[in-house]
Structures are given as structure tokens and as C-alpha cells.
Nucleic acid binder design. Structure first.
Lengths: 243, 243
DNA sequence: TTTTATAAACGTCATCTTTACGTTTGTTTT
DNA sequence: AAAACAAACGTAAAGATGACGTTTATAAAA
């Protein structure tokens, strides 16, 4: 950008976590936090993000941000959009949060989302006041972070229809109904269990284990795993034109 | 980015143009150009791009870049990925092209692609030495621009299967075979004409005109238009899980 | 021990979609 | 008038989907 403003490039992360027990798709956010001379201000929630370090790729930054927030590495991640409107940090409500030197700063953010299991995250292990919120019941969010989450969610909705990323949100061993519940959570729809079940069981990469649920008070369900190996081997792009 | 390097944020544009006559999907690139004190250097081709102005959104920058290159506005555009690897401009071959002050610069680019008709572009109207190349037969490209084009193309391949963006590449009036040819060009596959034809004709938003091809030396084909109105009206997200 | 409640799992039929071909039609050129 | 040929139409089998009924296995209650 050829002008007087200072540029700032950061990565913001939308962390989606699914809780198979409560069937709820959540987003991890932190309390907005500012130490001034006089006091510590805390109000809305925001996404976690950070500046891109000098020798880092954008992917590396996203990985670092997730690790610092959750302790996790090797989670599914996707860069889905860049945000950089000139006014994106200057809603009236946000002005107090902008440090003086930042008034003259143009901030771009490359947004990523992660897919993982809420159970894998220990919220006490980090210094942020991180908290899960259901994706359909988010708190007030600072800056343009509501919009960023909404766009991440839209991308997830589309992508889960054509790629087996759904399994990144589930434990290794799952039941057919777990998968159905998750699709219903993400897409906000009801699916016929008998048809869904038939469809999934017919996939060669959904493999039945010699194992059933334990500790349930009804007929225990068959457990399955998703085999990425089988999926990759049999995978051939199907060019189904569906417009 | 909290470090000494100067930051630079630009938008690069991959302009896809389809030529219905030759059935070829092309990319518009320009000669790489540098005026030094002694001489004018020209070698490889590169994508067009420019810095993001102070009061501009990223979308505005992309629109401006396209207009400056082609004179066109209101073309289909999509932001598909940000590129920002620390080494993305410093291949050995590229070093000569980096101005002195840029050695200490970290450059991010937000990449867009456009869909339009080659016929709509008058290449003589701009100062660049712009040239169309078939997407499967690109010239040597500077920086990481080959990679950027490849990723744009991948996105287009996926997206044309689930959204009617194909019609952005065709003239308003087209034949069924035009559409088939275009899908075959983009996807690099052969499609059965009889099945494809039936499928397309059954779509309510593909509307037959009272008009046929003229000036062809065989049976002239029926002309159709795509009705965005009908498409939007009847559109309801079909949640076909196709994993 | 038997019964009951209930989620899991299986089954069926009609309809729509896709795949793989063969056939006819309409226009221009010979 | 005939030939050439792309455009356009047709058909049957296989596969996928949608809608819905039935059976089964388990834990908890009686």
C-alpha cells in the first residue's frame, strides 16, 4: 500500500469444536483484554489472532496461534478468506480498544478456521479467558469478528458436503448417529436416519469395528472409524455437475 | 507483523477468459517490466496486481486492477486465497526484479480471479503487453504466479460443479454444446453429449430462445440463455452429502 | 425372571437420476 | 437429389434417493 498508513498483517483463527455428547458445534473465543495505565479493561469476546512473524508463512502463524491458545498441533486447518476493509477495526464500540499508534494503522487479517473436538482442549491451560460458544448463539464480538465467524461457518457448511472433513470434528471411533447428529448441527437440518445410515454404511471407507458403545442405557451402537487410507486410494474426482 | 521489515499488501488478479470459438480457456498475463537507469528489462510474464490504496477495500483494488488492464467493470470476481510466504518473491530468477528498497520488504498478496469472455477484452487498449495463454499451456511466470494461477484454476474447477458460474464465461446466447465444450475445457474430461444435453435442458433456468445459430455450415443449433432470475427464485440449497 | 421402553438396525417400494448406448432430424454442401 | 454431419431425440438398465414400516438388542423397571 503506497501511502502514509502503517500496515499490519495478522492471522485470525476461528476454532470450531464439536462436542459429541451435547451435539453442539462451538467456536472458541477469548475475552477482549487491554491493560492501560490505570486499569484492566475487559468486555466483549474476540477471536484469537496474532501478527505474522518475519520468517513465518501464513500457515505457520495460524498453527502457532492455535498452539498458544489450545496447546494443540496437527489439527485440520483451512485458510478461507482475507479481511482488510479500511474501517474494519473502527466501529464506534471498538475505538477504545485501538491503541494510539494503531489509529494510523491499516490492518489486514488472513482468516483460518480449525476443526477439532472440544474435549481435546483444556481451557485452563492458557492465559486467555477462552470460552466455547455454540456457533448459533455467539456472544457480542469485537471488531468484525462476527462476520469472520459467519463466513468461516458458511465455508464449513459447503465444504462438509463434498469432503470428509466432518470426521475431523468427531472422535476416532464414532457411531453412525454421531455423524448424522453432526451433519444436523452444522447444516441446521433434519435427516432421515434410515436413509442416512444406509448411505454411510455403503461407503467403503467407513469401517465397522468389532466394538460397540459401552455404558449406554439402551441398545449400544456399533462403532465405526473413517479410513483416510481407503478414502484416498479409492478416491477419484467425481465430476458431478450439480448446478 | 512486529519486526523491522516493511510490509506490503497487494492484490493479484488471475483473469480467466474463455474463447467460445476456439474452445479455449485462457489466462491474461503481462510482460514483466522494469525501467532501470540504463535500460528497460523485459522477460517473463506475470499476473497483474497492485497495492491496496488507503481508502480502498480489497474488492475495490481487484476491480480497479481489472479495469486498468481490460477496461472492463462488473465482471464476476472471487477472492480465493492470500499468499505471503517470506520467500515468495526471492527465487534466484526473480532477484533482479526486486528494487533495492524491496529487499527489506515482506509482500503479501490477496489473490482474486475473474471470469469473462476473451472477446470482451481489447488488448490494444492498455499499456501493458498483455497476452492470453491457454490455462494448460502457460509461459514462464515470475515470482510465485504460476502457483497462484494453479490454485485459482483448482478453485474454479470445484466451484463450476456446484454453482452456475460457467455462464460468466459464455456469451449471453449460447448452445448446449457450447456449455458442454466449456465444461470439458475446464475439467479436462469428455462428457456424453446426449446425457449432458438432457440434463441441461431440464433445468428451468436454461431457457430456449426463438432463435438459432446463423452462418454455420451444418444444422444450426438452438440458442439458450441462462436466467439468473429463475435460478435465484427456484434456488434452495440442496444438502446433498457427496463424500 | 419377565416385561417394558427405546434407540439401533434392517427392509421395501416408488421415484428420480445417471450411464450407456442407438436413432432420427434438419441444414448446408456436393 | 444425394451426401455429409452436427443437432436433437429416444430407450432401457442400473444406481441413488426419499418416504416410511418393521424388527432387534440392550438396560431398566416391574
Amino acid at each position: 500500500m503506497k501511502n502514509e498508513k502503517i500496515l499490519n498483517v495478522s492471522v485470525d483463527c476461528v476454532v470450531f469444536g464439536y462436542d459429541v455428547a451435547t451435539k453442539s458445534l462451538n467456536v472458541l473465543v477469548i475475552k477482549r483484554f487491554l491493560e492501560s495505565e490505570k486499569e484492566v479493561l475487559v468486555d466483549d469476546y474476540v477471536l484469537t489472532g496474532y501478527h505474522v512473524y518475519q520468517h513465518e508463512t501464513l500457515d505457520d502463524t495460524a498453527t502457532r496461534v492455535l498452539k498458544e491458545l489450545t496447546g494443540l498441533t496437527n489439527q485440520y486447518k483451512k485458510q478461507f478468506k482475507a479481511f482488510g476493509n479500511p474501517d474494519r477495526l473502527t466501529n464506534e464500540k471498538d475505538l477504545i480498544w485501538i491503541k494510539n499508534e494503531e489509529f494510523n494503522t491499516r490492518t489486514f487479517t488472513i482468516a483460518y478456521y480449525f476443526l477439532l473436538k472440544t474435549d481435546d482442549v483444556d481451557l485452563n491451560k492458557n492465559e486467555h479467558q477462552a470460552k466455547w460458544f455454540p456457533v448459533n448463539n455467539l456472544p457480542e464480538l469485537g471488531f468484525d469478528h462476527k462476520k469472520i465467524i459467519t463466513e468461516a461457518y458458511e465455508d464449513l457448511k459447503t465444504k462438509c458436503l463434498s469432503e470428509p472433513i466432518i470426521f475431523k470434528l468427531l472422535p476416532d471411533k464414532f457411531t453412525i448417529n454421531d455423524v448424522q447428529d453432526l451433519y444436523e448441527s452444522i447444516l441446521g437440518i433434519k435427516i432421515d436416519n434410515r436413509n442416512f445410515r444406509r448411505k454411510l454404511i455403503n461407503k467403503k471407507y467407513i469401517i465397522a469395528l468389532d466394538e460397540k458403545q459401552v455404558g449406554v442405557s439402551k441398545k449400544p451402537a456399533q462403532l465405526y472409524i473413517f479410513s483416510k487410507d481407503v478414502y484416498d486410494k479409492m478416491f477419484q474426482k467425481n465430476y458431478l455437475i450439480n448446478i
